[in-house]
Design a protein around this nucleic acid. Structure first.
Length: 436
RNA sequence: UCCGGGGUAGUUGAGUGGCACAACACCACGCUGUUAACGUGGAUAUCGCAGGUUCGAAUCCUGCCCCCGGAGCCA
């Protein structure tokens, strides 16, 4: 082979190879040329690296190739690693050889600005760009932090079904599919099943895709998104708020640790705002949140749920996440436990991120009394037969239990400072968008 | 579903009744330290679609389609 016996290394390992001649495999990201010296920006999936080719350093044939190689052509390159302040990232490769693997013609994404519609149509290519690399890396580390946090605390990951036979909460619009002649719906939450596994295993979570057929056309909505839902047997509202705080702090700080530099350099994220995500967060009773909104001049009627604009105003009022608890019973799902002091309120909690990013977490304590649950099922006009297995959880050794759901894309979006959720998932599914 | 903005070259935009423009991308040439490099030249358009008004329509009128943002709903 052309490259033997040289060692193939990745760009993210380059710092430990200064002075060595190495082999890299990847794609041409950009080319700058200044007569007899060429600068090519090369990417291999682990990073971006500036490569320099002087006319004297490589063969005439290779120099010609470097001069004409198109953006996103795949190549194998060899060269010597050098530390140089003039290079972005501090390291560069002095090229000694280039081999074209496959060419590329008229790559549609240019170094200038593009519209979101155009970029989403070519999402499969857009993912190659620098900005998307950072966002996807943050997504990966957020997922990894979520799993580590829960796994290290004795939670079992027990995933819940995506095909479901009934309307789980009776609120959201669901996607309907044909299931061998019967109707099945794509899951909008794993929570009811989580309650079953929590009664079997104590501390559990599910982490998977969630589907909502709402015709929402806003920056805060996807029709398919990922949600992690921990559920804990014997936990009260207070316990689950503590858990949510610790969980969110851990995810944010882990992403800052692993991607802080890129967040700051490429996405221009203000890291100090993320570093402020430290416990204790701000906790407000629903009534106090309503008062705060009114103080801010919002015309808000007690008893309603907060709209997107209200969430933005509440979240922007503090420099750390805000936990609003004890929402009115009537705006929350049927399974929410009522406040024993005042049944107008329920034992629920939402966590709103700072900087107007809105709701990251929603959860609370579930009804554990059978009579109470059946009453609520009837009040909400839900089919009792379909909820029979769910009611069983209250027939056989029912215990207080609580849980919450955290939206992955909203969390990634907040950490990265994105303007729209669609950049926080590799292939977003939106109203009017099912491809690529 | 409702409200607002928009559709002009591959892309991003300018163009309010009289020869369709610019930048980037592409092609050619020049340049030995570039940082979304730069300079000179070239090629590139069914002005969303269908009607209408007019001597003349990207521009005015009617209908339709599509995109973007927001509301409702939600994580």
């Amino acid at each position: 082979m052309w490259c033997d016996p040289m060692k193939h290394v990745y760009i993210n390992e380059i710092a430990s190879h200064v002075g060595e001649t190495i082999l890299l495999r990847g794609w041409i990201y950009n080319l700058r040329s200044s007569g007899k010296i060429k600068f090519l920006i090369f990417r291999d999936g682990t990073g971006f690296l500036q490569c320099v080719a002087g006319k004297a350093d490589v063969s005439g044939e290779d120099f010609e190739l470097i001069s004409t190689v198109a953006q996103e052509s795949s190549v194998e390159i060899t060269g010597k690693v050098r530390e140089d302040k003039r290079a972005p990232g501090g390291f560069e490769l002095v090229l000694s050889g280039v081999r074209l693997i496959a060419g590329s013609e008229n790559y549609p994404i240019t170094p200038k600005e593009h519209g979101s519609s155009f970029l989403l149509d070519i999402r499969h290519l857009w993912l190659r760009s620098r900005r998307q690399h950072v966002v996807m890396k943050v997504r990966h580390h957020a997922i990894s932090a979520i799993r580590d946090f829960l796994n290290n605390r004795g939670f079992l990951c027990l995933d819940t079904p995506i095909f479901t036979p009934n309307v789980c909460e009776g609120t959201s619009t669901l996607f309907e599919t044909d299931y061998f002649g019967d109707k099945a719906y794509l899951s909008q939450s794993g929570q009811l099943y989580n309650e079953a596994t929590a009664a079997a295993f104590g501390r559990v979570y599910c982490f998977g895709p969630t589907f909502r057929a709402e015709k929402s056309k806003t920056r805060r909505h996807l029709t398919e998104f990922w949600m992690v839902e921990p559920e804990v047997a014997f936990a009260t509202l207070e316990d689950i708020i503590d858990l949510a705080e610790e969980f969110f702090e851990y995810i944010v700080l882990r992403c800052v640790e692993s991607c802080g530099q890129e967040l700051s350099d490429v996405l221009e994220r203000d890291i100090s705002k993320l570093e402020a995500v430290k416990r204790p967060f701000v906790r407000l009773h629903y009534d106090d949140a309503v008062d705060l909104l009114k103080q801010k001049g919002v015309d808000f009627e007690w008893g309603n749920d907060f709209g997107g604009g209200d969430e933005t105003i509440l979240g922007e009022a503090f420099d750390k996440p805000l936990l609003v608890h004890h929402y009115p019973t009537r705006v929350k799902a049927f399974y929410m436990e009522r406040d024993p002091e005042d049944p107008e309120y329920c034992l629920s909690v939402d966590m709103l991120a700072p900087e107007g990013y809105g709701e990251m977490i929603g959860g609370g304590q579930r009804i554990h009394d059978l009579d109470q649950l059946q009453k609520r099922i009837r009040e909400h006009d839900l089919p009792e037969e379909a909820f029979r297995w769910y009611s069983d959880l209250r027939r056989y050794g029912s215990v207080p239990h609580s849980g919450f759901g955290l939206g992955l894309e909203r969390t990634v979006s907040y950490i990265c400072g994105l303007k729209h959720l669609r950049e926080a998932i590799p292939f977003p599914r939106l109203l009017n968008r099912l491809s690529p």
